[in-house]
Amino acid sequence: HIECVVCGDKSSGKHYGQFTCEGCKSFFKRSVRRNLTYTCRANRNCPIDQHHRNQCQYCRLKKCLKVGMRREAVQRG
């Protein structure tokens, strides 16, 4: 199976330009649609994997963008 490029979980297909799991797909869509801004409580390099992906939204969104998920691919409302 193909892994989610963000957290390594099982990918459910290509979403917003990259293969991601449902969790990262939904997180990215929600973040972009609502134009959410997050803050990192650590050093902005938190581990984002299957077990830690919900611990830091700032670093999760940063990783989504770093691996090539595209904001412009998210349809507005």
Rank of each mutant, 00 (worst) to 15 (best):
F28D: 00
N54P: 11
K62A: 12
K14N: 12
D9Q: 14
T20E: 08
R76C: 13
G17Q: 12
S11E: 05
R33Q: 15
M69Y: 01
C24T: 00
R71A: 11
R41Y: 13
G8T: 06
R44L: 09
C64E: 01
R71N: 10
K10M: 09
K25L: 10
I48Y: 03
R44I: 12
E22Y: 04
C24K: 02
H52P: 13
G77F: 05
V6C: 06
S26E: 14
Y58W: 10
K66C: 06
E3D: 11
V74R: 04
S31T: 10
F27D: 01
H52R: 07
E72R: 03
C24G: 00
C59K: 00
H51G: 12
V6R: 00
C7A: 02
Q50E: 12
L65M: 09
H1E: 11
K62W: 07
L36D: 06
P47Q: 12
Q75R: 07
R70A: 12
K14L: 14
C24R: 01
Y38K: 01
Q75K: 09
G13W: 00
R71H: 08
T39D: 14
G23A: 07
F28Q: 01
Y16T: 05
I48R: 04
Q18N: 04
C46E: 06
G23Q: 12
V74E: 11
G77D: 14
D49E: 09
V6W: 03
S12Q: 11
K62C: 05
Y38N: 01
L61A: 02
R44Y: 04
S11N: 07
Q55L: 09
F27E: 03
V67D: 04
Q18S: 10
S31Y: 07
K14T: 08
S31H: 07
F19R: 08
F27A: 01
C21P: 00
G77R: 09
G13V: 05
R70V: 12
S11Q: 11
Q18A: 13
L36M: 08
S12I: 10
G8C: 06
G68V: 02
L65P: 01
S12R: 06
G13T: 08
F19P: 14
Q50C: 09
G68I: 03
K25V: 12
A42W: 08
C7V: 03
G68N: 06
Q57L: 06
G17M: 02
S31E: 04
G23D: 15
G13A: 15
R41G: 15
C64G: 02
R76I: 11
N43F: 06
Q57G: 13
R70S: 14
T37E: 15
T20L: 08
H51P: 07
V67A: 08
C40F: 04
H51A: 12
R60K: 11
R34G: 14
T37K: 14
N43S: 11
N45S: 13
H51V: 09
K10D: 14
C24N: 02
R76S: 10
K63T: 04
K62R: 09
G68E: 03
D9G: 09
K62P: 03
R53V: 09
F28P: 00
K66F: 11
R33A: 14
K29R: 07
T39F: 15
L65N: 05
R33L: 14
E3A: 11
C59P: 03
S11D: 05
Q18I: 09
N45L: 05
Y16H: 01
I2S: 00
V67K: 07
G77I: 10
S11V: 04
E22M: 11
S26L: 10
C59S: 01
N43Y: 04
G77E: 13
V6D: 01
N43H: 05
Q75D: 15
S31K: 02
T20F: 08
N54R: 04
V74N: 09
G77V: 10
V5P: 15
R76A: 07
D49Q: 08
C40K: 04
E72F: 05
Q55T: 08
Q75C: 09
G17R: 04
R53L: 09
K29N: 11
V5Q: 15
L61S: 02
K66E: 12
Y38T: 02
I48V: 14
K25H: 15
C64S: 03
S31F: 14
K10G: 08
E72L: 05
H15P: 14
T39E: 15
H51D: 10
S12V: 13
C4P: 01
K63Y: 05
E72N: 06
V74Q: 09
L36H: 13
H52C: 08
S31R: 00
Q18F: 14
V6L: 00
Y38A: 04
K25A: 13
L61H: 02
C64M: 09
Q18K: 10
C46K: 02
D49I: 06
K10E: 08
M69W: 02
K25P: 03
V6F: 03
R30I: 04
Q55K: 10
Q75W: 08
R33G: 10
R33H: 10
R34S: 06
C24S: 00
A73G: 10
Y58D: 10
K66S: 13
G13K: 09
V32Q: 05
L36N: 04
Y38C: 01
T39L: 14
I2M: 09
R53S: 07
N43T: 09
L61Q: 04
N35Q: 14
E72C: 04
F19T: 08
L61I: 07
I48K: 02
K10I: 12
G23L: 03
A42C: 03
S12M: 08
Q50F: 05
Q55N: 09
E22Q: 15
N43Q: 12
C64Y: 03
P47S: 07
L61R: 01
C21T: 01
T20D: 00
G77M: 11
S11Y: 15
F19Q: 14
F27I: 01
F19N: 12
K25Y: 14
L36T: 11
E3I: 08
I2Q: 02
R53W: 05
C56I: 02
M69L: 10
C24W: 02
Q55E: 15
C64A: 06
R76F: 13
L65T: 07
A42N: 04
H52A: 12
R33W: 13
I2F: 00
K14Q: 15
V32G: 04
V6G: 01
C64H: 03
G23H: 15
V67C: 08
C7Q: 00
R34M: 11
N54I: 13
R41A: 15
R33P: 01
Q50Y: 09
E3W: 05
Y38I: 06
R70D: 14
G17E: 07
C21G: 01
G8D: 15
C59Y: 01
R30K: 15
S12H: 08
